[in-house]
């Protein structure tokens, strides 16, 4: 079913959503950045924005994620799981990030399922805002994860100017609409046609970034990337870990216990496979001691056929965040191009 939401109805709807739980939406932060943050009022929501650089994955996979509390009771350790049962709505999230969360959920659902992640994901309602204007660094057309989605969302909004077209993707989406049923009406054929025209127009207005995964996937999956190329590229990486942290599909972590008033809280923390010590073993041995080895591992993981054969997608959703945040010059499109051409900076 497809509905229409008049622009003036958004405030009432958001108020109802806020009554039901936390609503996370892009808001303008104190220094002008657009950031995903918990809404205090509907007026804070921004509607016309380039996708925030800090991804919304933090609301399913926080940078510091307390998992269990460990207490010493006499001679015994008592372990108590920490549950985050908050009901959250992720509002105005972009198509690439919806696909990113879908990717993370597939990964965390795989045996053994990750209860902490899944509890958050299952309590999350995703209301996306289709990209009528692709963002400048985005290349989601190359990863089939935008600018419009055909699934993966609970609701997909398309800005038609005076109103929003609302596509329902799940029962969670229906439930979100049911919070303020009066503000929605059935969409007309003209409105549906307008949404389709916007999608066609958006696809014709991508920025300069492209990422031809096909041939890169063939080369990397069949071991046809020379070691010398990784070595060369590795010199252009400053090992900041930014590509991992902003990537909607990266989920690597490490675990550390935090001491708090006689108890310990075991936390999962974002980690970067590009850090030297990520694979460092207690013996001091490091199977990927050199940066070229870590870089090769990362791009093999993202670009090789492993995900494609399983999920029909690569480990990239084309958001373009790594282009902006790379402290060096080894972001996804640059490295994919180098793999494809077999040369770097020549």
């Amino acid at each position: 079913m497809v509905f229409t939401l008049p622009r003036e109805g958004t405030t009432q709807w958001l108020e109802k959503l806020l009554e039901a739980g936390e609503v996370i939406a892009p808001v303008r932060g104190p220094c002008g950045d657009v950031i995903f943050s918990a809404l205090r009022s509907p007026a804070q929501v921004v509607w016309d924005f380039e996708n925030p650089l800090h991804p919304p994955k933090q609301f399913v996979l926080p940078q510091t994620d307390p998992l269990v509390k460990i207490k010493l009771n006499g001679q015994r350790h008592e372990v108590e799981p920490i549950h985050d049962d908050s009901s959250r709505t992720l509002f105005n999230v972009r198509s690439c990030d919806v696909q990113g969360i879908a990717f993370l959920t597939r990964m965390h659902e795989a045996e053994p399922p990750d209860a902490s992640y899944l509890r958050r994901a299952h309590n999350l309602t995703i209301i996306s805002l289709a990209c009528t204007t692709p963002c400048p660094p985005g290349f989601c057309a190359c990863t089939d994860s935008g600018p419009f989605l055909s699934g993966g969302y609970d609701l997909q909004l398309t800005d038609l100017g005076g109103s929003f077209l609302v596509e329902v993707g799940s029962e969670k989406g229906e439930a979100a609409m049911a919070k303020a049923p009066d503000v929605f009406r059935k969409a007309t054929e003209v409105e549906v046609a307008e949404r389709k025209a916007l999608e066609v127009a958006a696809k014709a207005h991508f920025g300069p970034e492209t990422c031809h995964f096909g041939s890169a996937m063939r080369r990397i999956s069949t071991g046809r990337v020379q070691d010398a190329l990784w070595e060369k590229m590795a010199d252009w990486c400053l090992e900041c870990g930014g590509c991992n942290f902003v990537c909607p599909t990266c989920y690597c972590f490490s675990v550390k216990d935090l001491r708090r008033d006689g108890t310990w809280v075991r936390c999962r923390m974002w980690d970067s496979c590009q850090y030297t010590a990520f694979t460092l073993e207690a013996s001091g041995h490091n199977p990927r001691a050199q940066r070229k080895e870590r870089m090769k591992r990362r791009f093999f993981h993202k670009v090789s056929a492993q995900y494609y054969t399983r999920d029909s997608m690569v480990g990239c959703v084309g958001c373009g965040r790594c282009i902006k945040t790379c402290l060096g010059t080894t972001h996804m499109p640059a490295v994919v191009a180098a793999i494809r051409k077999g040369k770097w900076h020549e």
């Binding site: 950031i35 940078q63 510091t64 900041c240 945040t325």
Partner: peptide, 27 residues
């Protein structure tokens, strides 16, 4: 409690980028 670090594109020096130390500054 501190839980993490988020980037800024408007900061005139960092311009949306941080090094490993910056990314883990809350720790």
């Amino acid at each position: 409690e501190l839980v993490g670090v988020a980037l800024s594109e408007t900061h005139p020096v960092s311009l949306g980028r941080l090094c490993a130390r910056g990314w883990n500054a809350h720790e």
